[in-house]
Design a protein around this nucleic acid. Structure first.
Lengths: 179, 179
DNA sequence: AGTTTAGTTGGTAGCCTACCAACAACATTG
DNA sequence: CAATGTTGTTGGTAGGCTACCAACTAAACT
């Protein structure tokens, strides 16, 4: 097995754990056992826990992408945003990464870049620039709503508007079909 | 020393630690040493770590309140919101609590109540109802902006609008002077 | 063949939280 | 007052966790 293959497998397994049991269940011993290697080996690939987190962020992105593609139907962009922001487990995952990383400038930069990709995608979808304040504010707001939803799983989307409504609120309308 | 006094002292000391060194530095051993009691004693007062977190949330609120009062000048409501949401350490603190608590329905309820207090204060300030979607969305957005700011301490408030601008964006204007 | 380099292992040091049995101090009540 | 419960306090420990390290193996390279 090629080395990068193993790395892939680690990340995929880690994502499985996070999806199934949440971010707090993702520990080196558990992950090592699930993948079938030694705990110390994990720190060889990911020296700090935050390194694993960051890598997971991209892996998660990639997985969501492939899911979208494999699911045949037209990948509804706003539905994707919805699941990205309003899924409690996903949000917990993201927040876990944020606080783990927010004190490490180097990793923070990666996370920032990740956000930038999201901004680009959204901007492209609505025919705007990634630096457009409306787009930035839209993302901020999405996250805020997701955060609240994390604390109020009971009343699912009553007070929370749909992604579409939210976008409209920021003056974002689809000008060209999703790429 | 009355029992509740000690509890007070624990919380105050914990807040000092959080303010000075961040939420990740708040551990039972450290806190116990700072207060001058045994680690095991802390779990007597706060069986789970999340219990301490929740108690800290109110204590932090109270402290901010007293600071505002003692600082003489008229407590600028929007400035208060600004420091509440855009201070990185505070945001880290809040997020730490959120993810620590989000899986415990009982504690989640307390946090929800805390949010409700905030909503009430904001609603009162702008002459709205706490259930007003504009108010709720405003809070969501504030948090989202604070979250981003946590990841981008470099460009402080360029893209981020001021609290006032943000409020205006949601149609919130001061109708009556701050209470 | 010889020497770096990458991958892998077991072990450990040093944190941390949560629990528990024991003790002390104090109040309650019969 | 004696017995009993309640609350506070202590030391110790069990069980997890991350991060590190020295040793070994295999592969690659010259």
């Amino acid at each position: 097995m090629a080395a990068s293959d193993l790395r892939e497998r680690i990340l995929e397994t880690a994502l499985d754990i996070v999806e199934a049991q949440g971010i707090q269940a993702l520990t080196q011993p558990r992950l090592a056992k699930a993948v079938g290697l030694r705990q110390s080996h994990l720190t060889y690939y990911f020296p700090r826990k935050a390194d694993l987190y960051i890598a997971l962020l991209e892996a998660s992105h990639a997985r969501a992408h492939s899911h979208n593609k494999s699911s045949g139907a037209a990948p509804d962009f706003e539905a994707m945003l919805q699941s990205l922001m309003f899924d409690r487990n996903r949000m917990r995952f993201f927040l876990g990464i944020v606080i783990a990383v927010s004190e490490e400038p180097e990793l923070r930069a990666i996370l920032r870049q990740h956000t930038h990709h999201l901004l680009q995608a959204i901007a492209a979808h609505y025919g705007r620039e990634p630096s457009d304040p409306d787009v930035i504010m839209f993302v901020d707001c999405l996250r805020g709503v997701g955060l609240r939803h994390l604390l109020e799983p009971d009343n699912p989307i009553d007070t929370a508007p749909s992604v579409g409504e939210l976008a409209a609120r920021f003056g974002l309308e689809i000008s060209s079909p999703a790429s």
